[in-house]
Write a protein that binds this DNA or RNA. Structure first.
Lengths: 190, 190
DNA sequence: CGAGTTTGCCAACAACTGTTGGCATCCACG
DNA sequence: CGTGGATGCCAACAGTTGTTGGCAAACTCG
């Protein structure tokens, strides 16, 4: 994608800023994560953040701009797609680099309408189409909504609120309990 | 509860502040809702907020301080308790005054550790005990966690993110789809 | 070696935040 | 009537925020 093969001398600084920004945004959310704290974590001056990313909004966009492509469910076995989806959801939320990015998006969503809009776009553009073929097409948005409600609730209670019993669940337990629910929502009739 | 029958002349102002605060906190979250904006909505000076509520934290505590008593499930029919719980959850989230308060708590939770702690307290103090008698007592926290994950996910997608398909669901549809899930979580074995 | 660009830091600005003190005004009560 | 407290507004403070401009050092390339 990059048509410019010129490695700048400041690439290390750029990367350090982006790395610190992802951590701070994930830990504190958009508003509490200050440019000064991010710069301090990266070990550079706050003005460098402005020079390389233009503004705090630009930095946030860069920190969140990754290919959040959901797994392709196109060839999945309709009988076990609920389990597959649950497992891959856990992987996304518990492995770098998507774990911090997803946490950032969810934490920032409640305070920033722009982030809410981004989540709606991912929902309409990726989730609903992926659900399309497991039931009546006209019913896909409703089924996708139910699936997302269950999975986002898991993410909210496990990774944001950190309710102890939900944190204590092992991935295997989560799959055992929640995958059947996802399976039912995915294939339920209207 | 009030042992002081002395109606102050400023009661109307106090109520106006509290009302505006609940709306602002629900709409903007704790940090974006400023004392100045709340005072402007209430049509008074910002310093009045400080005089009557001490600080922004005091105002928030007052705005959120209502009897958030969950419905007593003690005498519910174990076979239909999932439906009962789902219905009452919808009532709490869609009727004044608890609707704005719950939205405030959820929106503020992701940015304020103190609010997260309050949610954990309600969870441990009210939700887990209510779930206790529908299965093995030692297993109650796990079942309560699963129930809350599903219900909070519904609240998050419907009232915060406002995903169109989830917003479009009628209460009857929600009960039909989600109550069986709640019922299963409530009574599932470890 | 030497001119020009890049990289980085320092200091400062303007806006906004929660918060405070002082000073009018109004009401209740003697 | 008139005194004292309650009520309200104005102005200001101190801290933090995102953001900007200028200047020194380092590097690149002729």
């Amino acid at each position: 994608m990059s048509a410019e093969p010129s490695p700048r001398r400041s690439d290390a600084t750029r990367a350090a800023i982006l790395d610190a920004a992802r951590r701070r945004f994930a830990a504190d959310g958009f508003r509490r994560a200050t440019i000064r704290s991010i710069a301090a974590d990266a070990g550079i001056d706050p003005s460098m953040v402005m020079r390389y990313y233009g503004s705090k909004d630009g930095l946030f966009a860069a920190a969140v701009d990754v290919a959040l492509d959901l797994p392709d469910l196109g060839e999945a076995d309709p009988a076990t797609v609920g389990e597959l989806l649950t497992r891959q959801f856990l992987v996304l939320w518990e492995q770098p680099p998507t774990d911090e990015i997803l946490l950032t998006l969810l934490r920032s969503a409640v305070a920033d309408d722009a982030v809410v809009e981004k989540i709606r776009e991912v929902f309409a553009g990726q989730v609903t189409p992926a659900v399309l073929r497991f039931g009546a097409p006209a019913d896909a948005p409703r089924r996708a909504g139910l699936v997302v409600a269950q999975l986002f609730g898991l993410a909210l209670t496990r990774y944001v609120l950190r309710l102890p019993p939900v944190v204590a669940l092992t991935p295997a337990e989560i799959v055992k309990e929640i995958a059947p629910t996802i399976q039912r929502y995915l294939t339920s009739a209207g």
